[in-house]
Amino acid sequence: MPVSGVLISCAEGAAPDVSRKIADIGGVEVHGVIQDNRIVAVVEGETVDDEVARVTELQHLEGVLSVSLAYHNFEDDEP
């Protein structure tokens, strides 16, 4: 199962709210909120495709400015 670490940039002050909403998206865990405008989260999926679908969902949340990818491990993702 692939794992990725993402940094979610949010509109000023929106991070706590966004982080609550993220709890509803399966496969995404919030690991920390930095200064009300950034969130560190870990995304998991059965496949890379699942991960990307989740990140796309994140990107469409109200208050999210952008999602960046810091780390991606897909050792176990079969071709």
Partner: peptide
């Protein structure tokens, strides 16, 4: 090992955010 991988993933994001102190 999976927990470590997840922690590594989060650590990389913390470091990139300039908050390496939160590295678990």
């Amino acid at each position: 090992r999976r927990d470590f991988l997840k922690a590594s993933a989060a650590a990389a994001a913390f470091a990139a955010a300039g908050a390496p102190l939160l590295n678990p």
